[in-house]
Simulated scan of single mutants.
Amino acid sequence: MGKRETEASLRCMELGIERTTMGLNLVRLSEIELTDIIVLHNDPRVLRHLPLADGNFDEFECARWVESKETQWEVNGYGPWGFLINGVFAGWGGFQLEMGDVDLALVLSPEFWGCGRAIYRKIIEVAFKEMGFESVTALLPPSRVRADGMLRLGFQAEDQVEVSGTIFYRYRLWAPEQRQRKG
């Protein structure tokens, strides 16, 4: 773990969410200030892992983007949330319909990168215990060089897929009861 990652993990531990998710709130993206989302989506450190983004994410684009994410909830009954850690916007993520699968997204502000595991645990718990999904997928761009972390979380590498002309690596995590049937 690099110095930055260690500092981020320590910050999340200080905030009390590394072992518990008590300081974490999942809220609809429409409840997040657009300026917070705009800052996140224009951060070059975040953009490095969002190959479909162009770095020109203004208020108009953000409002359209939030509306499209809210539509996921209306159409599919699930969608992405905004993550608040002790009341501070940390990023967004959750589930989106992607190529017929429930796809997991997790986009965090660099100041909260060390909090990803705790946030992941919470949203996976919601996926399998509350929403009853059989599996979720995750699409990672080639820039994510530490994709072995997906395997440690229980995901299985599936294949490469193309989204809007960009290649992603697809991973799948089966619900615990599905893993037992397949194992």
Rank of each mutant, 00 (worst) to 15 (best):
Ser164Glu: 15
Tyr169Gln: 14
Phe89Asp: 01
Gly94Ser: 10
Phe133Arg: 07
Ile32Tyr: 03
Phe155Asp: 07
Thr166Leu: 13
Gly94Arg: 05
Phe133Ile: 07
Ile38Glu: 12
Glu177Lys: 12
Val27Cys: 07
Phe128Trp: 04
Pro80Tyr: 00
Lys182Trp: 04
Ala175Pro: 01
Thr166Ser: 13
Asp103Ile: 03
Thr71Ala: 13
Asp54Ile: 00
Lys129Cys: 07
Ala118Phe: 03
Gln72Thr: 05
Leu24Asn: 01
Thr35Gln: 13
Phe60Asn: 12
Ala63Val: 05
Trp92Tyr: 14
Ala138Gln: 07
Gly55Pro: 00
Cys62Met: 01
Ser109Thr: 09
Thr6Cys: 05
Ala8Trp: 06
Ser109Val: 06
Met1Lys: 11
Met99His: 10
Ala175His: 08
Gly87Phe: 03
Asn25Trp: 06
Gln96Arg: 11
Tyr78Cys: 04
Thr71Ser: 12
Asp159Ala: 12
Arg64Leu: 10
Asp36Ala: 14
Ala157Tyr: 15
Gly79Phe: 04
Lys69Gln: 14
Glu134Trp: 02
Arg179Val: 12
Leu173Ala: 05
Phe89Thr: 00
Pro80Ile: 06
Gly94Asp: 08
Val102Met: 03
Phe168Asp: 07
Glu158Tyr: 00
Phe60Gln: 15
Gly149Ile: 05
Glu111Asp: 15
Val102Lys: 11
Leu40Trp: 04
Lys182Asp: 10
Leu97Tyr: 02
Phe155Pro: 02
Asp103Leu: 01
Gln156Arg: 10
Gly183Ser: 15
Ser143Asp: 09
Ile119Thr: 11
Leu29Thr: 06
Val27Ser: 06
Val46Glu: 09
Val66Trp: 03
Gly183Cys: 09
Met1Val: 11
Gly154Tyr: 02
Arg146His: 14
Glu125Met: 03
Arg152Lys: 12
Gln160Tyr: 13
Trp113Tyr: 13
Met1Ala: 13
Thr20Trp: 04
Asp36Tyr: 06
Gly16Asp: 08
Lys69Cys: 02
Asp103Pro: 02
Thr20Leu: 02
Val161Phe: 08
Leu104Ala: 09
Glu74Gln: 15
Asp54His: 01
Phe128Gln: 07
Val66Leu: 04
Glu7Cys: 02
Ile119Pro: 07
Glu74Gly: 06
Leu34Ala: 12
Ile38Ala: 07
Ala138Gly: 11
Asp103Thr: 08
Tyr78His: 10
Glu130Cys: 03
Asp43Glu: 12
Arg4Gln: 15
Trp81Asn: 03
Glu5Gln: 15
Ala127Leu: 03
Ser164Met: 13
